[in-house]
């Protein structure tokens, strides 16, 4: 038996109330995704080095490849335990409860101004190319074309968004969904970052959060289930702990806080962290235009 260290409070409540069942959807070294039979959403059991996130339970395990789990293994709950077939039992009674709560947009924006500039410079230097950030040396025609489309479509989306043409912006956003070679395509990751900022309480762009919901309505047939789940949660302001920490640092932190938290985000996936971070910067730019503040 393994113990859960922490987890999404809703997920833990479902386990405690024995109201969760499903089957294993996909298995990676550091995470296992479970498809819920109750609501169809994906839930994640993650190893101890992964940060908290929506629908995620972090447990005391180093890697999952030493546990003989298989896709379609049955998952069920019983009192305080989550069982995956008869291969893994997780106790949640001692797990710390976590909830995804975004910080409020600040009234004074000096720190935000400084940190946005610093963040852009840092990504220019240390961000991973090949997705939203152009690779210095794309090597195949596929990479070159992908880079061109990402740049072109992001530009079109932001133009529509900045000019308050929402229905056009929704259409342009949909052209980014599923674009990119990774498990979570670069276009999806960019939108996760953008949605996060549009959901910041008290931000000039907060009224645009409905835009996020409209985009997500179009997303399901355009990308895979894992990436869709991240976008769907981001559209209602639910994102991973490392992203929340980064947002907090941008809005209120010192330069050291910013670099520490930005580095954690940049390490997500291959280029995913960079793509998310660039989505965040695009969202902050939208705030600048909407509120004249940033």
């Amino acid at each position: 038996m393994r113990y859960a260290i922490s987890g999404d409070s809703d997920f833990i409540q479902k386990i405690k109330a024995s109201e969760f069942s499903g089957y294993v959807h996909s298995i990676f070294n550091r995470t296992v995704n479970i498809q819920s039979l109750e609501n169809g959403e994906l839930y994640t059991v993650a190893c101890q080095e992964i940060d908290n996130g929506p629908n995620t339970l972090v447990i005391q395990v180093e890697r999952f490849n030493t546990i003989n789990l298989s896709v379609n293994d049955q998952v069920y709950t019983e009192n305080n335990f989550l069982h995956i077939a008869n291969k893994l039992t997780i106790a949640v009674d001692k797990a710390a409860l976590w909830e995804s709560i975004l910080p409020e947009y600040p009234q004074k924006v000096e720190i935000l101004n400084r940190n946005s500039t610093k963040m852009r410079d840092y990504i220019d230097h240390y961000g991973i190319g090949g997705g939203m950030k152009k690779s210095n040396h794309p090597t195949t025609p596929f990479e070159i074309e992908l880079s061109r489309l990402l740049e072109e479509r992001t530009g079109l989306l932001l133009t529509e968004l900045f000019n308050n043409r929402h229905s056009e912006a929704i259409e342009k956003a949909s052209k980014l969904i599923g674009l990119g070679p990774g498990l979570t395509p670069s276009g999806d990751d960019f939108l996760v970052g953008l949605f996060t900022i549009l959901n910041l309480p008290k931000s000039p762009t907060h009224p645009l959060k409905d835009f996020c919901l409209e985009v997500v309505k179009l997303a399901k047939p355009l990308t895979n289930e894992i990436s869709y789940m991240a976008m769907q949660k981001a559209s209602i302001g639910k994102v991973r702990e490392s992203i929340i920490s980064l947002i907090h640092s941008i809005l209120y932190g010192t330069e050291e806080d910013l670099i520490l938290s930005l580095n954690k985000v940049l390490k997500i996936g291959s280029s995913s962290g960079t793509d998310i971070a660039l989505g965040i910067l695009a969202g902050l730019e939208a705030n600048k235009i909407a509120g004249g503040k940033v």
Partner: peptide, 13 residues
């Protein structure tokens, strides 16, 4: 060589 998920957008590329 291209290794990518089979989304409509990737197919477009």
């Amino acid at each position: 060589a291209i290794i990518a998920m089979g989304t409509e957008m990737n197919k477009g590329v």
